[in-house]
């Protein structure tokens, strides 16, 4: 089975995010980059499926990102993935979600696939749009925010669990399918020392837009980020004090109506 896992390189959750001066993105100096946390669940799910199936099943990592992405790709290989496709092109410095979807879908199609695992969203811009875009481009079903995954006994269908309010949902899907993973679906393994040593010898195939057959940027203009802005500073907090709670409530209502003018 050809198992595909998608990987995004994102700033560390502990990194302090600052907007650059031009308002075109974040400041990258001094920021540590890691594998998108949710994608780690996707990698683990892919590796578990491969281990269960055995035989000639193979896990291939796909990552669209700058040159420096090789480090997070190598980490996925050290966890146990077999090889990787790194889509790296100066034109793709900060692609819109539709573009990323179109490019990844083409690369995945070229490679061949039976199932795709990834995180439910990137922890950087949280758009959660790329997965759906890939499903659309490849014409396959998509199941989001999976909390469990298994193959049916005959291996022909995917059985996916989702946590929903007040219970769990069980979904059966045809293959191929793209499954986006939630926290709790598994416990991602560490890259072991032997894994890190082996990863050095595993193949990372680099692809540019031209290699993938794109003459121009796909899905260009479908969406565009106009400007990045820092969060507004929090306003001052004013405490409303009174002997009786009912008086405080009246005073609060008066302030909201007369001063803040919001009710």
């Amino acid at each position: 089975m050809k198992i595909i896992v998608l990987l995004k390189r994102v700033p560390d959750t502990e990194a302090k995010i600052l907007i650059n001066q031009e308002g075109t993105g974040i400041r990258k100096d001094g920021v540590k980059f890691v594998i998108n946390t949710y994608d780690e669940y996707g990698i683990e799910e892919g590796l578990k499926l491969k281990e269960k199936l055995g035989g000639d099943s193979k896990v291939t990592v796909f990552c669209l990102g700058p040159e420096e992405s090789t480090e997070v790709i190598r980490t996925a290989l050290a966890m146990g993935a077999d090889d990787a496709v790194h889509i790296c092109d100066p034109a793709l410095e900060s692609p819109a979600p539709f573009t990323t979807s179109a490019v990844l879908a083409k690369a995945i199609k070229d490679e061949g696939f039976d199932i795709i695992f990834c995180g439910k969203q990137g922890i950087d811009d949280d758009t959660a749009q790329v997965q759906g875009g890939i499903a659309e481009a490849l014409g396959i079903p998509q199941v989001n925010i999976a909390s469990s995954f298994e193959l049916s006994e005959d291996g022909s269908r995917a059985l996916i669990g989702r946590r929903i309010e007040g219970g769990n949902e069980k979904i059966e899907s045809a293959l191929p399918v793209i499954v986006t993973c939630d926290k709790g679906i598994n416990e991602p393994r560490y890259a072991s020392l032997p894994g890190i040593m082996k990863a050095k010898k595993k193949e990372i195939r680099t692809r540019t837009l031209a290699d993938l057959g794109f003459d121009e940027m796909p899905a260009a203009g479908r969406s565009k980020i106009l400007k990045w802005l820092p969060l507004p500073k929090g306003g001052e907090c004013r405490m409303v004090e009174a002997e009786e709670v009912s008086d405080a409530v009246k005073e609060l209502a008066r302030l909201l109506r007369e001063e803040a003018k919001i009710i």
Binding site: V34, T70, E71, R74, T75, A78, Y190, A191, S192, L193, I196, A199, K200
Partner: peptide
């Protein structure tokens, strides 16, 4: 090196 950073990440996460 890249390899050393990977090793450090594994043992840091584990610790």
């Amino acid at each position: 090196s890249e390899e050393e950073r990977m090793i450090q990440k594994t043992i840091r996460d584990f610790a």
